[in-house]
Nucleic acid binder design. Structure first.
Length: 151
DNA sequence: GCCAACGTTGGC
DNA sequence: GCCAACGTTGGC
Protein backbone atom coordinates (compact mmCIF):
# COMPACT_ATOMS: atom_id res chain seq x y z
CA UNK A 1 0.00 0.00 0.00
CA UNK A 2 1.21 3.45 -0.90
CA UNK A 3 0.68 6.88 0.54
CA UNK A 4 0.06 10.15 -1.24
CA UNK A 5 -0.76 13.77 -0.78
CA UNK A 6 -3.06 15.81 -2.99
CA UNK A 7 -3.52 19.55 -2.88
CA UNK A 8 -6.75 21.37 -3.34
CA UNK A 9 -7.82 24.93 -2.85
CA UNK A 10 -10.65 24.63 -0.33
CA UNK A 11 -12.78 27.26 -2.03
CA UNK A 12 -12.73 25.04 -5.13
CA UNK A 13 -13.12 21.66 -3.45
CA UNK A 14 -12.50 21.17 0.26
CA UNK A 15 -12.40 18.14 2.50
CA UNK A 16 -15.93 19.12 3.58
CA UNK A 17 -17.04 18.95 -0.04
CA UNK A 18 -15.51 15.49 -0.28
CA UNK A 19 -17.23 14.46 2.96
CA UNK A 20 -20.54 15.53 1.41
CA UNK A 21 -19.97 13.87 -1.97
CA UNK A 22 -18.26 10.75 -0.53
CA UNK A 23 -16.46 10.02 -3.84
CA UNK A 24 -15.04 12.41 -6.41
CA UNK A 25 -13.18 12.30 -9.71
CA UNK A 26 -9.77 13.81 -9.11
CA UNK A 27 -9.80 15.46 -12.52
CA UNK A 28 -8.18 18.56 -13.96
CA UNK A 29 -4.57 17.68 -13.14
CA UNK A 30 -2.53 19.08 -16.03
CA UNK A 31 1.01 18.50 -14.95
CA UNK A 32 2.91 15.50 -16.25
CA UNK A 33 4.72 14.64 -13.05
CA UNK A 34 1.51 14.81 -11.07
CA UNK A 35 -0.26 12.76 -13.72
CA UNK A 36 2.34 10.05 -13.48
CA UNK A 37 1.78 9.80 -9.75
CA UNK A 38 -1.98 9.64 -10.27
CA UNK A 39 -1.46 6.66 -12.54
CA UNK A 40 0.58 4.87 -9.91
CA UNK A 41 -2.19 5.06 -7.35
CA UNK A 42 -3.71 1.72 -6.41
CA UNK A 43 -7.12 1.04 -4.96
CA UNK A 44 -6.96 1.36 -1.20
CA UNK A 45 -3.96 3.69 -1.10
CA UNK A 46 -4.18 6.40 1.54
CA UNK A 47 -4.15 10.04 0.55
CA UNK A 48 -3.50 13.10 2.70
CA UNK A 49 -5.85 15.88 1.71
CA UNK A 50 -4.07 19.22 1.70
CA UNK A 51 -5.68 22.64 1.64
CA UNK A 52 -3.56 25.17 -0.20
CA UNK A 53 -3.75 28.94 -0.42
CA UNK A 54 -6.45 29.53 2.10
CA UNK A 55 -6.02 29.88 5.83
CA UNK A 56 -5.48 27.52 7.52
CA UNK A 57 -3.06 26.04 5.03
CA UNK A 58 -2.26 22.43 5.81
CA UNK A 59 -3.43 18.83 5.89
CA UNK A 60 -7.18 18.72 6.41
CA UNK A 61 -7.98 15.02 6.30
CA UNK A 62 -7.58 11.67 4.64
CA UNK A 63 -9.03 10.09 1.53
CA UNK A 64 -8.54 6.69 -0.05
CA UNK A 65 -8.10 5.68 -3.67
CA UNK A 66 -11.47 4.25 -4.69
CA UNK A 67 -10.86 3.68 -8.39
CA UNK A 68 -7.54 3.61 -10.19
CA UNK A 69 -6.77 6.26 -12.79
CA UNK A 70 -8.71 6.31 -16.05
CA UNK A 71 -8.85 8.83 -18.90
CA UNK A 72 -9.90 12.19 -17.47
CA UNK A 73 -13.17 13.02 -19.29
CA UNK A 74 -12.64 16.78 -18.94
CA UNK A 75 -9.83 16.69 -21.52
CA UNK A 76 -12.36 15.78 -24.26
CA UNK A 77 -14.98 18.35 -23.33
CA UNK A 78 -14.63 21.52 -25.38
CA UNK A 79 -16.59 23.53 -22.86
CA UNK A 80 -14.49 22.43 -19.94
CA UNK A 81 -11.68 24.65 -18.74
CA UNK A 82 -9.43 21.60 -18.72
CA UNK A 83 -10.15 20.76 -22.36
CA UNK A 84 -7.01 19.65 -24.23
CA UNK A 85 -7.24 19.72 -28.01
CA UNK A 86 -4.25 17.43 -28.35
CA UNK A 87 -5.85 14.62 -26.40
CA UNK A 88 -7.81 11.91 -28.19
CA UNK A 89 -9.89 9.01 -26.91
CA UNK A 90 -7.35 6.63 -28.41
CA UNK A 91 -4.46 8.51 -26.85
CA UNK A 92 -5.61 10.30 -23.76
CA UNK A 93 -3.09 12.60 -22.16
CA UNK A 94 -4.60 13.05 -18.74
CA UNK A 95 -5.87 10.65 -16.15
CA UNK A 96 -7.85 10.83 -12.98
CA UNK A 97 -8.52 8.40 -10.15
CA UNK A 98 -11.60 8.47 -7.95
CA UNK A 99 -10.97 9.42 -4.35
CA UNK A 100 -13.21 8.48 -1.47
CA UNK A 101 -13.66 10.42 1.73
CA UNK A 102 -12.16 8.81 4.79
CA UNK A 103 -11.97 11.47 7.46
CA UNK A 104 -11.67 15.15 8.13
CA UNK A 105 -9.31 16.15 10.92
CA UNK A 106 -10.87 18.02 13.84
CA UNK A 107 -8.40 20.77 13.05
CA UNK A 108 -6.19 21.28 10.02
CA UNK A 109 -2.58 20.32 10.71
CA UNK A 110 -0.98 23.56 9.60
CA UNK A 111 1.92 23.83 7.23
CA UNK A 112 3.82 25.89 9.79
CA UNK A 113 3.54 22.99 12.26
CA UNK A 114 4.75 20.53 9.66
CA UNK A 115 7.80 22.69 9.06
CA UNK A 116 8.58 22.69 12.78
CA UNK A 117 8.23 18.96 13.21
CA UNK A 118 11.31 16.83 13.50
CA UNK A 119 11.28 13.89 11.14
CA UNK A 120 9.32 15.62 8.40
CA UNK A 121 12.19 17.72 7.05
CA UNK A 122 12.60 15.60 3.96
CA UNK A 123 8.94 15.61 2.96
CA UNK A 124 8.52 16.65 -0.65
CA UNK A 125 5.83 19.09 0.38
CA UNK A 126 8.23 21.06 2.54
CA UNK A 127 10.92 21.45 -0.09
CA UNK A 128 11.39 24.96 -1.29
CA UNK A 129 9.32 25.68 -4.35
CA UNK A 130 7.55 22.34 -4.38
CA UNK A 131 4.42 23.10 -6.36
CA UNK A 132 3.56 19.55 -7.25
CA UNK A 133 -0.14 18.97 -6.60
CA UNK A 134 0.12 15.19 -6.34
CA UNK A 135 3.00 13.74 -4.38
CA UNK A 136 4.08 10.44 -2.90
CA UNK A 137 4.39 10.35 0.89
CA UNK A 138 6.40 7.82 2.88
CA UNK A 139 4.58 5.82 5.56
CA UNK A 140 6.69 7.28 8.33
CA UNK A 141 5.59 10.80 7.41
CA UNK A 142 2.01 9.77 6.86
CA UNK A 143 1.78 8.15 10.29
CA UNK A 144 3.40 11.13 11.95
CA UNK A 145 0.88 13.54 10.45
CA UNK A 146 -2.02 11.33 11.52
CA UNK A 147 -0.66 11.39 15.05
CA UNK A 148 -0.34 15.16 14.95
CA UNK A 149 -3.94 15.40 13.83
CA UNK A 150 -5.11 13.31 16.79
CA UNK A 151 -3.20 15.15 19.46
C1' DG B 1 18.08 21.46 -28.45
C1' DC B 2 18.44 26.07 -26.42
C1' DC B 3 16.43 29.64 -24.04
C1' DA B 4 13.53 33.87 -23.47
C1' DA B 5 9.00 34.96 -22.55
C1' DC B 6 5.11 33.87 -20.42
C1' DG B 7 1.79 31.52 -17.30
C1' DT B 8 0.82 29.20 -12.92
C1' DT B 9 1.29 27.78 -8.16
C1' DG B 10 1.17 28.81 -3.67
C1' DG B 11 3.31 30.79 0.61
C1' DC B 12 3.61 34.99 2.78
C1' DG C 1 -0.95 41.77 -3.88
C1' DC C 2 3.80 40.31 -4.32
C1' DC C 3 7.03 37.39 -6.01
C1' DA C 4 10.04 33.08 -6.15
C1' DA C 5 10.13 28.92 -8.29
C1' DC C 6 8.76 26.24 -11.55
C1' DG C 7 6.55 24.35 -15.97
C1' DT C 8 5.32 25.24 -20.77
C1' DT C 9 5.54 27.29 -25.27
C1' DG C 10 7.45 28.64 -29.38
C1' DG C 11 11.03 30.98 -32.23
C1' DC C 12 15.37 30.10 -33.88
Amino acid sequence: MNYWLVKSEPYVFSIEDLARDKVTHWDGVRNYQARNFLREMKKGDAVLYYHSNEDPIGVAGVATVYREAYADPSQFDKKNKYYDEKATKEKPRWFCPDLKFKKAFKAVVPLSKLRETKGLEDMLLLRKGSRLSVQPVVKKHFDKILKMAES
